[in-house]
Design a protein around this nucleic acid. Structure first.
Lengths: 228, 228
DNA sequence: GACCCACATCGTGTATACAATATCGCTATC
DNA sequence: GATAGCGATATTGTATACACGATGTGGGTC
């Protein structure tokens, strides 16, 4: 009913309507607000955003390229349905890409980049102590981002971020599982040691294990919460 | 002038207009028929495809997500300009992804997949002897495709294909450089040996070297042909 | 002669109108 | 009672029309 994009978000006002709609839908999907398989009616979305169908259509088509939604011929658009198998495939892919990035980063990062990373990692100890999930989630994102960029390969960093973003909907939940946050930080610590020693291969293996541990924690959570 | 999509291509007739336009533009860009930086006027393209601006716009926006074109606010769309640095970044990324894939594939491929790959590789010797660049190019594509799929990770395979396709415009040329085709086949041979021994790490290192050699051959070709 | 501003022009961004097709419900028949 | 065929309806796909912003040019001024 109300035009959601009108005045409440200061940054959302300017820019192209289709871009704003695309960003809004991207957020809603990756945050899990829109359930997988949910139908995305063009007219309905147009009304919701106070726009016509044209920019909505463009946004939906772009999301389809990103893999966030699924266009089914002339039968409408739905939020991408992901089977558990596919989700695990995505996690494995992210794990491999992260492992690749940390190996390159170990060999290429500047001393300044290294010291910034160490500093961030040191500060994360306090976050774990406080048990602040949201703060740790934000730290975690930036920690990995810095590793991507430390590869000094902008294209690779873009790809890494793009792939990771498709798992956003699942990212936050896994941290709340038991001692996962503490263990995550410990795993970061092991990775940092390998980086400090300049052993990219070791850092890579530890990063892969780190990511797969996170995936396993998530899988346990999903299986526990859906005992169908 | 003439409606290009009308009747000459039997497979191109059915399906959505916007999809056909997108596929046509994708081919033209990845094959290098449209020069980087070339302006893509919406009305002009609409006329060329015998359609209205609407499906053309959708196609262009989708290509932008793929990174093939660049939208510059309200100032039109151009074929993505890639600096030499960015091209090398893309090659390195592809090399790393290929290396990742062959490592996983070595550990996971079925005996049938392995024997098919060996068979293909053996047959490629004859292609090299004949000096048939186009045939080798086709073989090469399928060789790498089979490795992607032998990872038994469909998502990873999709990502690998998507990233590789963005370098299509440069792929063919490098094979014509000197003994590159012969050396490419020799490198494949070394990779096959590592796979046969079940040594994924070795296969990975050799694949990375193989891809970077191809990139270097291309770089030499570019620098030689543009002595500005 | 160089720089700046106004205006014309072109192309993109969005809205609306029209066409085509898939879905759903109804009826008729087996 | 179930199923197949048919039609109504709703939603997508495409076309056209309009609005807004950007770019480039011409004239004027310093």
């Amino acid at each position: 009913m109300t035009k959601e994009l009108e005045g409440d978000d200061d940054a959302g006002d300017r820019g192209l309507l289709s871009d704003r709609i695309r960003n809004a839908l991207t957020d809603e999907i990756t945050q899990g607000l829109l359930e997988a398989g949910a139908a995305l009616d063009e007219q309905q979305l147009a009304d919701r955003f106070g726009a016509s169908r044209t920019p909505v259509r463009e946004a939906l088509r772009q999301l389809a390229v990103s893999g966030l939604v699924e266009v089914r011929g002339r039968r409408g658009v739905v939020v991408a349905r992901m089977t558990p198998e596919r989700i695990m495939e995505m996690f494995e892919t992210v794990a491999e890409i992260e492992a690749m990035c940390v190996r390159l980063a170990t060999y290429r990062m500047t001393p300044i980049e290294r010291s910034h990373l160490i500093e961030m990692h040191d500060l994360s100890e306090a976050i774990v102590e406080k048990g602040d999930y949201d703060a740790y989630d934000a730290f975690n994102l930036e920690f990995h981002d810095r590793i991507y960029h430390a590869t000094h390969n902008g294209f690779l960093a873009e790809q890494a971020i793009a792939v990771r973003s498709r798992l956003n909907a699942f990212r936050r939940t896994q941290l709340r599982q038991g001692e996962r946050m503490r263990r995550s930080r410990d795993e970061h610590d092991a990775i940092m040691q390998a980086i400090a020693e300049g052993d990219g291969e070791m850092a890579s293996r530890r990063m892969r294990a780190h990511m797969l541990n996170a995936a396993t924690a998530l899988r346990r959570f999903i299986e526990a919460s859906k005992p169908t």
